[in-house]
Design a protein around this nucleic acid. Sequence first.
DNA 1: CGGGCGTTTGAATCAAATCAATTGGAGTGG
DNA 2: CCACTCCAATTGATTTGATTCAAACGCCCG
Lengths: 256, 256
Amino acid sequence: MLATAVAVHSQPIVARPPVSAPRAKPAHRETAERIADTLKLVEDLLQPQRRIVHAGESIYDAGDGFQSLYLLNSGFARIVTTSPDGREQVVGFKFRGDWLGFDGIAKGRYACAAVATDVSEVWSVRYDALLAASVACPALLAVVHEAMSREIGRDRDSLMSVCTLAADARVAEFLRYWADALASRGLRSDQITLRTTRAEIGNHLGLTLETVSRALSRLARENVIVFAERGRREITIPDVEALSAFVQRNQRATLQ
Amino acid sequence: MLATAVAVHSQPIVARPPVSAPRAKPAHRETAERIADTLKLVEDLLQPQRRIVHAGESIYDAGDGFQSLYLLNSGFARIVTTSPDGREQVVGFKFRGDWLGFDGIAKGRYACAAVATDVSEVWSVRYDALLAASVACPALLAVVHEAMSREIGRDRDSLMSVCTLAADARVAEFLRYWADALASRGLRSDQITLRTTRAEIGNHLGLTLETVSRALSRLARENVIVFAERGRREITIPDVEALSAFVQRNQRATLQ
DNA sequence: CGGGCGTTTGAATCAAATCAATTGGAGTGG
DNA sequence: CCACTCCAATTGATTTGATTCAAACGCCCG
C-alpha cells in the first residue's frame, strides 16, 4: 500500500526480535504503529514533497527561513546547533518517522542544521498547510503534538545522561537508545551500524573522541558489546539488559 | 484590565533597563508582548483555573495522568525528571509566561515534576479544551506551538552548555540566561536573587555544589558578578556583556 | 599501492570530584 | 535577647576520571 517510497535502507527491514530479550516490549509495536499512522496521515492529507538526500547533505540549515516541517520516511539524520560564538553541538539523531524542524517555529528560522547521515527520504510539509489541514483533521494535530512532546522528553533524557552518567555509561546509554530506536522501528537492533564517527558521538555526549573509543573498548572487554570481525563501526549487542545494567553500575556518584 | 491575579512577586515589577547595556535589546520588548498576548488569549478563550502554589509545593508530579497544561502567571518553578534507576535531573527553570507540562502529551502522563520555587500563580488549562478552542482561534494554537518550539530550543541550549563549556563558564552562562529571562519579563536583571540552592544549580549544569560555589567565587573575584553584602544568594551583574565575554573565554578546548 | 581519515592505545596532565573542616544565616525556644 | 540548632555555602587538600598529546594502526577509495 502507498509504498511509492524509494527503498533506501541500510539494514534489513525484517522485523526481528532482539536475540536475548525474553520480555515482550509492547512499546515497540506501538511505536511502529504510530509511525505508520503518522506517515499515512501525512501522505493522505497533505501531499508531502518527497526528496532523496544523500549522506552528508543537509536537509535544512541553521538560519534558513522556517516554512516547512520535515518527516523522515527512511534513513538517518543528525541535528547540529551552533552557538553565536561558534561552538557546535550535536543535539540529536533522527530516525524513520521522526519530524525535523520544530525548532524553527518559535523564531521563524531554523536554529540548527539537519544533516542526513545515510541516504534518506525526507518528506517536507509546509507548516501553514499542516495547520490548515489539522483543523479538519484533529488526529493530524495530535500526532504533531505528540512528536513535539516526545522530542522535549528526549532532549531532557540527553541532558540527564550527560549530567548524571560517567563517560562509559554515557556511551552505553547512547548505544541502548540507538538500539531501542532501531528495534521500535522494526529494524534489527542486536547488530547495529553506527552512522556517526566517534567524534560526533563524543560531541553529542560531551566527551572527546578518545574517551568514546576507550569506552567502547571497555564495553567490548566486558562483553557488553561485541565488535564485528572487520571494521569497528558495526556493533553487536548480545543483551540489551546487560547494557542497561552497565549504565546503572556506572552512574556518577555525586549530584544526588 | 482583567488583573484579578494576585500580586505575588518577589522583585519589583518596574521595567528597568540593565545598568550598563548600551545596545537596545528589542527581543525583550517582543518577549514581554508575547507573554502578555498569551496570557490574555488564554484568559479570554479558556477560563483557566487559577491556583496559588507556595515555594516547595509541586504543580504536578512525574507519573500523574496528563490532562492539563499549566501557564505560569507569576513566580518561578523548576522541572525535575527522575530516571527509572533513580537519577534525578533538574532539566529546567520556568518563569512568568512559560508553559508547563508539554512532556505529558506524548505518553499521557507527565514525565517529570514541576515544583514552585517561590509563591506562584499557576493557570491550568485542560488540554482537550485547548485543542477545541484552538480550532476557532488559530492564534491560540500558534502561541502554544511557539512555546513548545522555544522549549525544544532551550533544552538544546542546555545540552550545549553542559557539553561545550568549562565549569566556570557553565555557571556564568546560567546566570546570563537567568538574567535574560528576568529582563525579558520586565523584571530587573542587574540584581538577581537565585531561587535555588548551589546543589540544584549544580545538578542542572552537571556539576557538584562545591564546583558551583567555587565558580561563583571566581566570578566574583573577577568582578563579573558581585555578591550582595549580606547573604550570598543575591547577585549583582554589573555588565551582562562581561558575563558573555567570560563564557567565551572559558569554553572547553576540545570537542571542536 | 599509497594516501588519508577514522580509530585505537599509551603516558602525562589537568580540571573537577571527593573528602573534610569551617563559616554563616535563618529559625527556634528558653 | 542570646544560645542553640540546622542547613546552605565556602574553602582547602587530595584524588581521580577524563582530556591532552602523541604515536601507530586499519580500513576505504582513488
